[in-house]
Amino acid sequence: MADHYSSFSRHSTGWLLQRLTAVFLIGVLAFHFMLLHFVNHAYEITFMGTQARMQEPGYLLTMVAFLVTAAFHGINGVYNALVNQGLEGTQRVVVKYGLAIAGVLLVAQGIRVAMAMTGTTIL
């Protein structure tokens, strides 16, 4: 039988964050589907409705938390999958920081869009 290998050290911070973000994402995704696919059907979703939802502080904070959590979870997962495939040395460092920069840019742009939806602009 093949040995099990994972780049995650069990019970490390990265291991714990990957699992906690998964739980959070499942909950927020359920909220998203319930609100935007069952309470309001797809044909009822409008730009103005989105702006109205984003102007609610609780909804805005939930969506920003969703963005940050999903970005971390996805980028951390991709990075660890690459490490599990044998990425090491300089390539590992380049990929690590490249993904980190991409994640920061993704979150920054997502927050800019969210703020624009509220009628507030930043940078």
Rank of each mutant, 00 (worst) to 15 (best):
Q18A: 14
Y79H: 08
E44Q: 15
F24H: 05
E88V: 11
W15L: 05
L67D: 00
M48K: 06
V94N: 09
P57T: 10
R112G: 03
F24V: 08
T62E: 04
A70T: 08
T13N: 05
T50I: 13
G27R: 03
F38T: 14
R19M: 07
L82I: 03
T90I: 14
A71D: 07
N84D: 15
M48T: 03
V28Y: 01
T121N: 12
G74D: 01
N40R: 15
A30F: 13
Q51I: 04
S12T: 05
Q91F: 10
V113Y: 04
V68W: 01
Q85W: 10
V78R: 04
A22P: 00
G103K: 02
L35V: 15
M34K: 14
A2E: 13
A81S: 10
M63L: 06
A116E: 05
L67H: 01
D3N: 12
V104Q: 00
G77C: 08
A22S: 13
F8M: 07
Y59D: 04
T13C: 07
T46V: 07
V104T: 06
A100P: 00
N84C: 08
M48N: 11
A81E: 06
N80S: 07
F8Y: 15
I26V: 15
Y5R: 14
V113S: 05
M63W: 02
L36S: 10
G14P: 00
T62G: 07
L123N: 03
Y43D: 15
H73P: 06
L20I: 14
V113P: 00
Q109Y: 09
G119V: 05
T118G: 05
V107A: 04
M54S: 02
I75Q: 04
G74R: 08
G77A: 09
V78H: 02
S6K: 10
Q18N: 13
G77H: 08
I111Y: 00
A114Y: 02
M63V: 07
F24Q: 05
H11T: 11
Y97T: 07
A114S: 08
V23G: 05
F8S: 02
T120G: 04
M34Y: 15
V78S: 03
E56N: 13
K96I: 00
H4K: 14
T50A: 13
G49F: 06
H73S: 10
D3E: 14
N80I: 01
R19W: 06
F24D: 01
T90R: 15
E56T: 11
A30I: 14
G103A: 12
L106M: 09
G14D: 09
I101D: 00
V94R: 14
I111K: 00
A52Q: 11
Y59H: 11
T46D: 02
H41W: 10
Q91A: 14
A70M: 13
A52F: 07
L35R: 15
R92Y: 01
Y43E: 15
Q85P: 00
A100D: 00
H37I: 03
R19I: 11
L106H: 03
Y59M: 11
V95Y: 01
H32F: 14
T90Q: 14
Q109A: 10
